[in-house]
Amino acid sequence: MNTRIHEIEQRIKLLLASYLESSNHPELEAHGEITGETNLVSDFTMDSFQVMEFMMELEEAFDVMIDMNSLSNTHTVHDLAVIVDKDLSG
């Protein structure tokens, strides 16, 4: 994995942890450590609204725009890091 994707992934892990801990979503519980292979839907049972809300937070944190179409094949933290990296690469 290249260094930038690794750094992005680390930051996404922190953002995800912060999102899960936010008082807005007490029903979401982290199941173990967040890794690159953590699946947003199956590991945290995030519903579609929560996934979209988290995407918006990522967009703002990295100052990128995520095409909704790219989300259909995006399941893990690593997948997200790849998408963010792609947009940052322009």
Binding site: M52, M55, M56, M65, I66, D67, M68, N69
Partner: peptide, 13 residues
């Protein structure tokens, strides 16, 4: 409609 079109979809708050 946006998704069916195949266009790049970006949401704003």
């Amino acid at each position: 409609g946006c998704q069916m079109s195949g266009a790049d979809i970006f949401r704003f708050r």
